[in-house]
């Protein structure tokens, strides 16, 4: 059996295909990833983007549409996936996928392009407690991306630059727009780019940390979402949370899509 999860994020569309495994002598290995695909949609119609992402994903994975028995959608645009059999929130999908990737994790930190959230999950990947921020974009990846642009750095350079700074410059503005003004002021006062980058990532981490503290830290912590690829943010988050280790999964952007595919396999949604 093959199931699919499709994560209609605010920036990208991710698809994961999950295949039932029958490994002799290893009954615990029930599911394996058959294929994955990420797409940056170039049109506003999310349903068209979903169709294209699924078609491209199927082609890449070398499977046909008929082989996929069940599809579950998640993410901000989950309701617009016409071909999905069911949809689940990104909170449930993220928790299910994260616990599958790291079974010892109970605290899931999900930082995507437009939203960040803290989730507490049980051993089965079921949500116990969650908190997001419905209003503020400053605790999410798009804010870091916008600040990187202001500093004329790529996201990779931005993350690496922050690691070279040992200064702590507080960013007082809570709002993305005002925070950008603060960054511009720092640029004009000839503050090194490294220090500004660290200040921005510390600010994002501090906002994410507030949501995580709201649900409380239990068990291992796992970070999912695109910001896993930013080593500066990972370092800032560790400091904010006051912990030495954060689990960073392979294919972090796909964890919610993986969770949706697992929920499709469970037949739950």
């Amino acid at each position: 059996m093959i199931t699919a999860g499709i994560d209609m994020g605010s920036r990208t569309v991710k698809v994961v295909f999950l295949e039932e495994l029958k490994v002799e002598g290893a009954p615990q290995l029930k599911w394996g990833v058959k294929g994955k695909h990420m797409m940056f949609p170039d049109e506003l119609d999310m349903d068209v983007a979903a169709d294209k992402a699924l078609a491209d994903g199927l082609k890449e994975a070398g499977i046909s549409r008929e082989q996929v028995t069940r599809i579950v959608s998640t993410g901000a645009g989950r309701k617009q996936v016409r071909f999905a059999d069911a949809d689940v929130t990104e909170v449930s999908a993220g928790a299910r996928g994260a616990v599958f990737m790291c079974p010892s994790a109970q605290t899931v930190v999900d930082v995507g392009a437009e939203e960040g959230r803290g989730v507490k999950a049980n051993a089965e990947g079921r949500v116990v407690d969650f908190a997001g921020n419905e209003k503020c974009a400053a605790g999410a990846g798009a804010f870091a991306e916008s600040m990187a642009r202001a500093l004329q750095l790529s996201l990779k350079e931005f993350g690496e630059a922050s690691l070279r700074s040992d200064k702590s410059i507080p960013m007082n503005a809570q709002c993305t727009v005002f925070a950008e003004s603060e960054v511009v002021s720092l640029i004009h006062s000839a503050t090194p780019k490294e220090d500004i980058a660290k200040s921005v990532l510390d600010a994002v981490a501090s906002r994410v940390c507030a949501m995580v503290r709201r649900v409380g830290i239990e068990g291992d912590v796992i970070l999912i979402g695109g910001m896993v690829n930013n080593p500066g943010f990972v370092s800032s988050l560790k400091t904010s949370l006051g912990i030495d280790h954060i689990n960073l999964p392979d294919m972090p952007e796909y964890v919610s899509a993986l969770g949706a595919a697992l929920i499709a396999a469970d037949g739950r949604a």
Partner: peptide, 14 residues
């Protein structure tokens, strides 16, 4: 499950 709906901004946690 405890669902927290709301936000934190410059004025506080709501």
């Amino acid at each position: 499950m405890i669902a927290n709906y709301g936000y934190k901004d410059g004025a506080g946690e709501f």
